[in-house]
């Protein structure tokens, strides 16, 4: 079994990079994810169906298309890319940050969906009760709504993380497959399968990939159960 942990530096980098990219993608998607979920669950405005469709688009489009659209928008010559580079000095294309963006976008519909469902399940009469006790809408959200949707929030975050760990098509299209910069686990496995004698490396990374996914899933399960026990439904 020792060969399993006998990773080359490049392979280690792919593992580390994948975890970094997935974590950043997950954390960065949370605030806009909560906002959009709130908007879709509670908002009443013109164009809601359109917005809902837009959010879900990455789920339906071929990942290559999403990656290509990101490249058009955030590439060196893309309008958003130019804006970010000139004003904030942020370059996304062919960087690991770009990989995080691609993974975040691909996981976004899953996250929004999970959070939205949990917001819709919140008993709004609890929020009204908090209002009569003097809490303004922002406080009501922070002290009542947010804790009540915590299980949904965790589920959404884990889904987004899992999606990011496995994301391949959009990432490779947008930021390519550069070792130590944008080569995540799936890209590394793909590279191994393309070279003669790469089977052993591909298998090693595949097993590691399975292990990481299992740990994330079990952790989310434990976390969700602990939160759930803390607040049995009345």
């Amino acid at each position: 079994m020792t060969w399993l942990l006998d990773l080359t530096p490049d392979e280690w980098n792919a593992v580390r990079l994948s975890i970094k990219v997935a974590t950043v993608a997950m954390i960065a998607s949370l605030p806009p994810g909560i906002l959009l979920a709130l908007l879709l669950a509670r908002g009443r405005f013109w164009g809601k169906t359109l917005l809902n469709g837009l959010v879900h688009l990455p789920l339906i489009l071929p990942p290559v298309v999403t990656g290509y659209l990101l490249l058009l928008a955030f590439g060196r010559r893309g309008p958003a890319g130019v804006l970010l580079a000139e004003h904030f000095g942020i370059v996304l294309s062919f960087r690991w940050t770009g990989a995080a963006l691609a993974c975040g976008v691909m996981g976004f519909p899953l996250m929004v969906r999970a959070i939205r469902l949990s917001i819709e399940a919140v008993d709004r009469r609890m929020e009204a009760a908090a209002g009569t006790l003097g809490a303004n809408p922002l406080w009501v959200f922070a002290t009542i709504t947010l804790p009540l949707i915590l299980p949904g929030l965790i589920a959404g975050a884990i889904l987004s993380f899992a999606k990011a760990m496995g994301e391949f098509g959009a990432t490779i299209t947008f930021v390519s497959n550069i070792p130590n910069e944008t080569q995540t686990l799936p890209s590394a496995i793909y590279t191994f399968t393309q070279v003669p004698g790469g089977d052993e490396g591909a298998l090693r990374l595949t097993l590691i990939s399975i292990a990481i996914s299992m740990v994330a899933l079990v952790a989310s399960e434990v976390l969700a159960r602990r939160v759930g026990r803390r607040m049995d439904i009345e």
Partner: peptide, 20 residues
């Protein structure tokens, strides 16, 4: 005056205690 500024307490039929 919005409800959170009224300083009017309310006891509901279904108690509505915060479960968390």
């Amino acid at each position: 005056v919005p409800m959170h500024k009224r300083r009017i307490g309310m006891v509901f039929q279904d108690a509505r205690l915060f479960p968390h």
